[in-house]
């Protein structure tokens, strides 16, 4: 230590006005940011708590496994519940593989040329298209042009088109998270692009890819507009408790549309039923998200770096 300077051991650690001010600002910012973040939790708790409170009188297993009755003024949710599951599963069976493979191509193979740029532009713009426009596209392309009629298949394909760009974007992010140096090391060892992808890139991005895909479940389950003209109906009775009660070339009920109908179109609905429907809709989505988290934790424990 140079004793000629001002910072002698005695004065070095005493607080100056500037350092005190910095410390205060630091504390204020920490508290401020914490409070803002905490605000996130409040709406979620209020929504779920309120829904539960209102729905309590109708919630039971029967509510889930019986069809609506008396022009939807009573009864349960079986037909719309199963319909939503059909729509979500079929749409993801289409959009997940296409989206993931497209993202692998765009991120791992595509060179920076006009085709890649146009594709990326299309993906970004497709993600920004409002869902009602997807609905109109679905009516034109699947219901009328492809001749699928109003059916689960047409509605699912419409949902697939809607979720596709987001799946491509989230998969791209997951692939980019795998360090470039891993790929270079593989190429230097004489591996092809596909060998590199299969042995290194995909095993180390699969958790991120699946998370992105599964997050689209909640979107597919929650959207009303894309399905109301392409395959969802106000009312349709199906065999109760039979998981295969729907045929994918026929129409179905769906939770989101059902909620809309009984809240706005049908007078004198038992008060708890719309809230119960909302609970089941939110519950289904949360259940799938929880499954996604479990899967991700499992895959992350196997992550290698």
């Amino acid at each position: 230590m140079n004793t000629d300077t001002q910072t002698s051991p005695q004065t070095m650690f005493t607080e100056t006005a500037i350092s005190r001010q910095k410390r205060h600002i630091e504390n204020v910012m920490r508290v401020f940011l914490f409070v803002i973040t905490s605000l996130m939790i409040i709406p979620l708790l209020l929504i779920i708590g309120y829904l539960f409170y209102k729905a309590l009188p109708v919630l039971s297993l029967d509510f889930l496994f019986t069809n609506p009755k008396d022009n939807m003024r009573a009864g349960g949710l079986w037909a719309p519940f199963l319909g939503t599951i059909y729509l979500v599963v079929v749409s993801l069976l289409v959009s997940a593989p296409i989206g993931v493979f497209a993202a692998v191509y765009l991120n791992e193979y595509a060179r920076d040329n006009w085709f890649t740029r146009i594709t990326n532009l299309a993906v970004v713009n497709l993600a920004g298209v409002p869902s009602i426009v997807h609905a109109l596209f679905g009516v034109g392309a699947f219901v009328l042009f492809a001749g699928l009629g109003e059916s689960i298949l047409a509605a699912s394909l419409t949902l697939a088109i809607m979720t596709l760009p987001v799946i491509i974007a989230s998969t791209t992010e997951a692939l980019k998270a795998v360090p470039m140096s891993f790929r270079e090391a593989c190429w230097n060892l004489g591996a092809t692009r596909w060998q590199t992808i299969r042995r290194i890139v995909l095993p180390n991005s699969i958790s991120g890819i699946l998370t992105g895909v599964i997050l689209q479940v909640s979107r597919a389950a929650g959207e009303t507009a894309p399905i109301m003209f392409t395959g969802a109906v106000f009312y349709k009775a199906i065999a109760e408790g039979d998981l295969f009660a729907y045929n994918i070339v026929e129409q179905c009920m769906a939770l989101s549309l059902h909620l809309f109908t009984i809240s706005t179109q049908v007078p004198d609905v038992t008060e708890g039923i719309p809230y119960g429907t909302a609970i089941v809709l939110v519950g289904t989505v949360l259940l799938v998200n929880a499954a996604a988290i479990v899967l991700r934790v499992y895959l992350r424990t196997r992550k290698k770096w």
Binding site: S181, F182, E184, A185, C186, W187, N188, L189, G190, A191, R199, I200, P203, N204, K303, K304, W305
Partner: peptide, 26 residues
Amino acid sequence: LRRRIGMVLPLPVGLPLSIYDNVAFA
């Protein structure tokens, strides 16, 4: 051609595989 040439880059890169699989990769 690439297998006729061994390449060692500036920053060490252990592939996210076991030591054995790292060497057995090529």
